[in-house]
């Protein structure tokens, strides 16, 4: 994909603040593309607490993370944002005085007037279990996600974990692996019951094995794994022969590539001013949990406010010299037209 996507704004992060930024920018005729590392919108609301209640969104006495996300998506629909999921923004470069070039790990390239970082706690990345020496095997024998199933064909695969990723990949890889072992710390799973049932059937039919325990060490040479040492739930240790291991322990937030974009950072947060929420680079803004300023509160409602003020400055950058008339959605026929309600 070498085609460059030209747009007004690239928003990094499809959490609540990134989504609401689409709304505030949209009212000012600023077109947006939204990039997120997850496979769906919502950010932390989707990944960490889709079913958990939030009590401090103004006028919504209680709302779940999933519901808040779907309401925001409905609210920004009139502005036709384009979403790019499963992409991590890897590079943001300033081109000359005006534009930015934004690149993702999936090969997307954007040219935009501004960049809005709404990346919350950073990018969600797979948790890497702190097994001694695991780094030496990463990408050769240890994988935290499956990019190409074929790479595991004919391998002796060990899958560790009890969530949906662990169970789904157990079922998907069993037919192509030479042998497959699922290792979990207990005989109970947080994964979908249907997948658990399938896994148990495969194990009973002798097509794979399911073992209880936790990995304590790895054996191998030159980055090639030969076995994982496991402490069983009875306390005894045993080895599981394998040349590929897939640990699935969920996701954690890491700042990620943001640190390499030439922005001033303070304790892994991006300092901004409180008038425009702009970073140390003109045209790059930071809103929501990822920014910091005196008095900052990591609340969704603060991110909404930040999005509104940010949009004012973006308008000025896009339309130099033009005066922006402040309008209310309640009374402005112009804004109502954009919202598709008049």
């Amino acid at each position: 994909m070498s085609d460059v996507i030209t747009t007004d704004a690239v928003i990094i992060g499809a959490g609540p603040c990134g989504l609401f930024a689409v709304f505030e920018l949209g009212l000012l005729d600023i077109r947006c593309h939204v990039v997120d590392i997850l496979d769906r919108p919502g950010g932390q609301c989707a990944e960490l607490y889709p079913e958990k209640p939030i009590y401090d969104i103004p006028a919504l006495p209680v709302v779940t993370g999933a519901e808040l996300t779907s309401r925001l998506l409905e609210q920004i629909k009139p502005f036709h944002p384009e979403f790019h999921y499963n992409h991590m923004v890897t590079a943001v470069k300033k081109l000359g005085d005006a534009d930015f070039e934004v690149e993702t790990d999936g090969g997307l390239k954007f040219r935009s007037k501004v960049v809005v970082i709404a990346a919350g706690g950073g990018s969600f990345q797979p948790k890497k279990p702190p097994i001694p020496g695991i780094e030496a095997y990463e990408n050769g024998s240890v994988f935290y996600s499956v990019k190409k199933m074929d790479a595991l064909r004919g391998k002796d695969v060990l899958i560790v974990g009890g969530g949906d990723s662990a169970l789904d990949w157990t079922i998907n890889l069993q037919p192509i692996a030479r042998s497959l072992t699922l290792l979990h710390r207990r005989d109970d799973f947080r994964a979908a019951p249907d997948s658990v049932k399938k896994m148990r059937e495969l194990a009973e039919a002798g097509k794979m094995s399911f073992k209880l325990g936790q990995v304590t060490g790895l054996k191998g040479d030159n980055g090639v794994l030969s076995a994982a040492t496991v402490k069983g739930n009875d306390g005894a240790s045993f080895d599981v022969a394998c040349n590929a291991m897939l640990p699935f322990f969920g996701l954690t937030m890491k700042l990620g590539p943001v640190a390499e974009w030439g922005l001033n950072l303070h304790e892994n947060l991006i300092p901004v001013d409180t008038e425009k929420f702009e970073t140390s680079v003109e045209g790059i803004f930071a809103i929501g949990d990822i920014n910091t300023y005196p008095g900052k509160l990591k609340l969704i409602l603060s991110g909404f406010h930040e999005a509104a003020l940010m949009a004012q400055k973006v308008f000025k950058l896009k339309n130099p010299g033009e005066r922006l008339m402040f309008q209310y959605t309640t009374s402005s026929s112009n804004l109502q037209k954009k919202l598709g309600v008049s």
Partner: peptide
């Protein structure tokens, strides 16, 4: 919590 501990290490 028991479910979530599946995502912890060395339980």
């Amino acid at each position: 919590e028991e479910d979530m501990l599946d995502f912890a290490f060395d339980v």
